[in-house]
Nucleic acid binder design. Sequence first.
DNA 1: GCATATTTGTCCGTATGTATA
DNA 2: CTATACATACGGACAAATATG
Lengths: 243, 243
Amino acid sequence: MAEPLTSLADDRALLGRTSTAERVADILRDRIAEGYFPPGARLSEEGVCGALGVSRNTLREAFRLLTHERLLVHRLNRGVFVRVLDIGDVEDIYRTRALVERAVVRGLGEAPHGLGALAAAVREGRRAAREDDWNGVATANIRFHRALVALAGSVRTDELMRGVLAELRLAFHVVDDPRRLHQPYITRNAEVLAALEAGDRAAAEHLLTDYLDSSRRRVVEAYRDRVAGGGEREAAAAAAGGA
Amino acid sequence: MAEPLTSLADDRALLGRTSTAERVADILRDRIAEGYFPPGARLSEEGVCGALGVSRNTLREAFRLLTHERLLVHRLNRGVFVRVLDIGDVEDIYRTRALVERAVVRGLGEAPHGLGALAAAVREGRRAAREDDWNGVATANIRFHRALVALAGSVRTDELMRGVLAELRLAFHVVDDPRRLHQPYITRNAEVLAALEAGDRAAAEHLLTDYLDSSRRRVVEAYRDRVAGGGEREAAAAAAGGA
DNA sequence: GCATATTTGTCCGTATGTATA
DNA sequence: CTATACATACGGACAAATATG
């Protein structure tokens, strides 16, 4: 559990660029994104702090960072837990995505620059799908939409969507059957890209609208099944967290 | 300097609701918004921590919160400073505002609910203007646009704009002649509101587009004058921060 | 319902590295 | 180049709250 990092202190001594807390936050953020720490899991201060070899004060700063990114929740005197989104969160995320992503497409010029990053994300998604790596497909899909938003050229909008899409990943981990969740959207991304390359912004916006609506419905539906049928540990933690 | 708060420890013991760091962050956020800590000012750990009667670790957590809100900048091994926006930041803020606010108006229904909050902000702006309280006018203008974004009904979008508009306030403090900066937009807000009340979203979006373009130009122009002519302490800090 | 053990919240003191005078 | 000041990170301490038996 602790072996993946050689020595945090060494890295700090060598590079010295970023603070230790930020490095710890990076590690935990990756762990959460890949599902190693699933939604609802509790991150014990002593446990993580011993595994990573940092002091409690440093770890708490890392927790603060991730809490502000909405990836962790902090319950007073209870500790920190990986966030469990409810359906309201999921719908708010898709509301924000529709608002921003459609506005970005609408505001593009005739021949926008930077479409290469979108094409690369599509290729990456296809490659991951061939290897049955549905987590990788999810990553590629998210990268596609981040690249799309980046076309607007606003660092603040980029950061908003980075956070929102990282949150959405939490919802993905709650849902079973990741293939059914992610596979259809590889082709849809390619269609949006093709419309943009053809300079047809109206078509791209229409495709994107349908895309987001379909994706939202699928996630919400899977969420409902999970809560109704499963009653797993995560669902229980979600209920406890909501109270 | 320290007297406005009776006792932070008492509040904590009595309420116990929010953490001490959040309360400290609230205080500092207000100080920055009102211009008590102007852009470029350095917040010494020892100074603030002594004035507020909290420990270094607690204060550092508050600094973390405000740094993530982009109100403070953290220079490694140098300390924290009130952020000094450059012209690129101002333009990015207005780019984000145009993207989001126009998308919100476009996405509204025929007879949107919650226009009362916008009307209240307009009234508040007029009242402040009568009292020559241009800081109050700025607050009212910001409140108007936050209420406008709130019509979209997305907490994530709300939070984005809350942060972006708080940042914009930093730019306002750099600019002299606040009256010239804020007064014209009281009427413009009223015009946008009237268009929305009439159900004319297209007109509202057009007014809003002109509004944001005008406001952006005015802030950027004042910024340029400030850097070229003034050479004040803030400008020097800005130059040092940019390097 | 009660007592115990675990965990968190907060704060202190110190050693180390960095930037500035 | 040296010296000072400051931020970073660590480890430990105690009180308070929670969970467990």
